[in-house]
Computed example of a mutant assay.
Amino acid sequence: MNIYVFQALNGLGLGMIYFLLSVGLSIIFGLLGFVNFAHGALFLVGAYAAFFTNQATGSFALGLIASFVCVAGLGLVAERWLLRRTYKMSHEAQILVTVGLTFVLTEAVVYFFGPESQRVAPPESLSSVLMIGPYPIPSYRLFIVIVCGVIGVALWWLFERTMFGARVRAGNERPQMLKLLGTKVSRVYAIAFGLGTGLAGLAGGLAVPLRGADPSMGVEAIVIAFVVVVIGGMGSFSGPLVGGLIIGVTQSMMSAIWPEGARLAIFLLMVVVLLLMPKGLFGRA
Results as ranks from 00 to 15, higher is better:
Gly243His: 05
Ile222Leu: 03
Ala207Ser: 14
Pro240Met: 05
Gly205Arg: 03
Val228Gln: 01
Asp214Gln: 13
Ser255Val: 13
Val229Phe: 01
Leu199Ala: 10
Arg211Asn: 14
Val208Gly: 08
Gly204Gln: 01
Leu206Asn: 07
Ser252Cys: 07
Gly233Pro: 02
Val229Asp: 01
Arg187Asp: 10
Leu195Asn: 04
Ala192Lys: 06
Pro209Glu: 06
Pro215Ala: 11
Val242Lys: 07
Ile222Ala: 03
Arg263Trp: 11
Ser216Asn: 08
Glu220Ile: 13
Val219Pro: 00
Pro215Asn: 12
Ala221Met: 11
Leu241Glu: 10
Leu264Arg: 06
Gly239Ala: 09
Phe193Gln: 04
Ala265Thr: 15
Val228Cys: 06
Ala192Phe: 11
Leu245Val: 01
Val230Ala: 06
Val208Tyr: 01
Gly248Trp: 03
Gly196Thr: 12
Ala213Gly: 10
Ile266Pro: 02
Phe267Asn: 02
Val223Lys: 02
Gly244Phe: 01
Met234Tyr: 15
Trp258Thr: 14
Ala225Val: 09
Leu245Glu: 09
Ile222Phe: 01
Arg211Ala: 12
Gly218Thr: 10
Ala200Lys: 02
Gly248Asn: 06
Glu220Met: 10
Ile231Cys: 05
Leu268Ile: 11
Thr250Val: 06
Thr197Gly: 06
Gly243Asn: 12
Met217Asn: 04
Gly218Glu: 05
Glu260Cys: 06
Gly198Pro: 07
Ser238Arg: 13
Ser216Leu: 13
Gly261Ile: 07
Ser255Gly: 04
Ala207Trp: 06
Gly232Gln: 03
Val249Tyr: 04
Met254Pro: 00
Ile246Leu: 08
Phe226Cys: 00
Leu206Ala: 14
Ser238Val: 15
Thr250Glu: 01
Pro259Ser: 14
Val229Trp: 02
Ala262Gly: 01
Arg211His: 15
Thr197Asp: 06
Gly201Ala: 13
